[in-house]
Design a protein around this nucleic acid. Structure first.
Lengths: 190, 190
DNA sequence: GTCTATATCGAGATAGAC
DNA sequence: GTCTATCTCGATATAGAC
């Protein structure tokens, strides 16, 4: 039992390291050696926990999905007003400013990369968008947007992705903040 | 002279083939063998025209930049009204629907990829955004937007990028069309 | 469960014949 | 200018000792 727990922590350690490197250098450009070095673990050790690189990515996506779901659940529990919840979503852009400027959005950049060469895995990455989408739609529904809730949710996702992408391309933090504030006002007017 | 011309056409053929493959499979995931096979050319031949893969990408970016500049010049020459020019830009989303759904935006996806692993080359890719940005800004200025022209241009770039990214992630053509039409209306109201 | 050694493959790049 | 043969390296993955 103690050994089992150690093994799981080991696995978790690999996933967290891979997650960080996939975000910063991309999935295809991150090698086993990179992960091994960053995690201080011998290369051959991976294959006890993951049969392939493919499987590591699946585990990373699961890890991210769990993080997103936990975050949204916490927002549901601590933020009563739908409008404030939507603004909390937008505020990610400001809180994560440095990472976005340097590496873009973790979800968006992974989706872009996988849609070119790993369509099967891309459908897993899409689940991250879908979790956000469902949650955003629920907030707009609570605001009484009715049938428009779906479009608003998709729109908010798209604009925040575009803002992340451009802010990254131009390394422009002023633009990022301006667009975030504009989204806040849009939420007020919805 | 005849030989020279043949050589240039050869080079051009390589660039066009590489451009297509970089768009569809990404820069890092496209190998020399892939380009050679698609262009029906032996591998070793590349190194007469390009000293490295790096140089092929530079040539591809130049090629794209030339195409963008020619397109904008043609719009300037044939579309008198700034508002119609802006709408022509948005219409790219509709005209290129199939490619966007499958591969995303060529500019955006290249920028995302390069910002992770090839920062030097990313700054070249950013030039494509800048050419569009300057042109969009000029149209908003012509509409009398004054100091807001800059922000509007950046905003339009960002939204079209976000729409491309999401449309690709969800393979959702209805969403792409809805957002394009919404941008058309936004242009009317600016 | 952990780690070393190694197999296998495909990548970018080069040398040199023609 | 064009093409073949080849080098070198680093990637994923496996075998098997401990």
């Amino acid at each position: 039992m103690a050994l089992k727990r150690k093994g799981q922590e080991f696995r978790q350690h690999i996933v967290e390291t891979a997650n960080r490197l996939f975000y910063r250098h991309g999935f295809n450009q991150t090698s086993f050696s990179d992960i091994a070095e960053a995690a201080n673990i011998p290369r051959g050790n991976f294959y006890y926990y993951f049969k392939s690189k493919h499987e590591i990515l699946e585990a990373v996506v699961e890890y991210r999905l769990a993080g997103i779901r936990a975050m949204l659940a916490e927002w549901d529990a601590t933020i009563p007003e739908p409008r404030d919840r939507l603004k909390r979503y937008v505020r990610i852009l400001l809180n994560e400013e440095q990472d976005i400027l340097r590496y873009g959005c973790p979800m968006g950049s992974l989706s872009v990369e996988l849609s070119k060469t790993q369509l099967v895995l891309q459908s897993r990455a899409r689940e991250m968008f879908e979790v956000f989408f469902d949650w955003l739609k629920a907030q707009f529904l609570a605001l009484g947007c009715g049938r428009a809730a779906r479009d608003h949710a998709r729109h908010l996702l798209a604009v925040s992705q575009g803002v992340s992408l451009l802010a990254n391309a131009f390394e422009d933090s002023a633009f990022l903040r301006r667009e975030a504030n504009q989204l806040m006002r849009w939420i007020d007017d919805v």
